[in-house]
Simulated assay, not measured.
Amino acid sequence: MSDSELMSIGSFAQRCGLTASALRFYADSGLLLPAEIDPVTGYRFYREDQLARAVLLRRLREIGMSLPCVNSALYADVVDAIRSVDDHVTTVMREAESVRQQAAAITNTLTGRSGLEVARLSGPVLASAIEQILTATIDDPDIAVLGGVHVEAGPGVLTMTASDRYRLSTRSLVSYVDGVPAWAATVNGDDLRQRLSDLRRTPSVTMKVTDHAMSLRLTGHSDHHCRFVSEPFPDYRSMLDTLPAVTCRVEVPAAELLHALEQRSNDWVWLCSSNNNLVVHGDLLPDIEIPARVNGRAVDVWFDMTTLYPAISTAVGADVLLDFRGPERPATVRSADRGDLTTLVMPIAAPRENTTRGHTP
């Protein structure tokens, strides 16, 4: 190999983003050997085709992978290398969560507060409710509160609410703590999501709160700490109190409506009422008519699929009630026989490209 095809350690370091000292260390570790070493000067030289390996080595180390794991990944095939990276990320996240939980416990110890008990609930029931409410959250780095769940506790009741601005879900649960004073805070949604697996397997959970966090004490488990979101939650009760009157109420089988929505390939959904049917229009697909109880003025309204479908799929019970207030007002989705989960869904304007059946936006 000619000298013109080799790079000095300095040039190679600049190309791959590693320092010269790091390259010497990785050479001594057997992870990246130089192509040649001058026997007189001891200078190290590298080839162009070693760059990809050097860059991969650097990136693996940047995510905190140990030298033995890096060595295995560098010599593995693509599938095994990807598995190694995934396993490393899983381990790091598990360790980070463990550290966070321990830090929260230390904080509680330092403050000398064991926490105020605000609720006692069934673990599986709480898990189900959290899953339903989390569908109305969104990860928005600029508005952290939209990724949180607003939790309110009072004598004998716990209410959870979330909103992503286009949808609002709220559910109330029976709590077996009667003497609790009114309390409310917005809890980090990701922290609650990580607790779902344990909640489903725990018959009872006690909810305690401090100034810094909410703790879930599960039977047979250590406490799980959930952080608070500092931003104030929107005044959703005022919004609910000022909703216009319902102009049409439709009671429809939830399973049939979900099946009809699943046949649509569009990003939007167009609903109309027709006699004793709710019609899911299909654009290029046939309309689907679902037998329904319809009371009030005719329905002609559009929704984003990503907004409407989760609201229907999380509704409790066999039949779902849809309360419409017009094409530009929030619609209410709730169970026909259980009112403990209520979701508000914002309609959208008719898509401009749609000309189905002569519909004019």
Results as ranks from 00 to 15, higher is better:
354 N>E: 14
206 T>S: 13
289 E>I: 05
243 L>Q: 10
129 A>R: 02
251 E>V: 15
226 C>R: 01
294 V>M: 03
47 R>K: 09
290 I>T: 07
145 V>Q: 06
301 V>P: 00
285 L>P: 00
24 R>K: 05
153 A>H: 03
256 E>V: 06
344 L>R: 00
328 E>C: 06
209 V>M: 06
204 S>G: 08
331 A>F: 02
123 G>N: 05
166 Y>K: 10
110 L>G: 06
69 C>Y: 01
62 E>V: 06
120 R>T: 15
303 F>E: 02
154 G>K: 02
74 L>G: 10
32 L>A: 08
305 M>K: 13
22 A>M: 14
87 D>V: 09
25 F>N: 07
213 A>M: 07
149 V>R: 03
154 G>F: 01
242 T>Q: 11
102 Q>E: 10
353 E>I: 09
15 R>P: 00
34 P>E: 06
180 V>E: 05
228 F>D: 06
70 V>D: 03
10 G>S: 14
204 S>F: 02
202 T>V: 10
201 R>C: 04
283 D>L: 12
75 Y>T: 15
217 R>A: 11
21 S>G: 03
258 L>T: 15
202 T>D: 05
214 M>L: 15
324 F>Y: 11
314 T>S: 05
257 L>D: 04
359 H>M: 12
20 A>S: 13
159 T>S: 13
118 V>N: 07
99 V>G: 05
58 R>T: 08
209 V>Y: 04
322 L>R: 04
53 R>P: 01
262 E>P: 00
196 L>V: 09
212 H>W: 09
299 V>W: 01
233 F>Q: 08
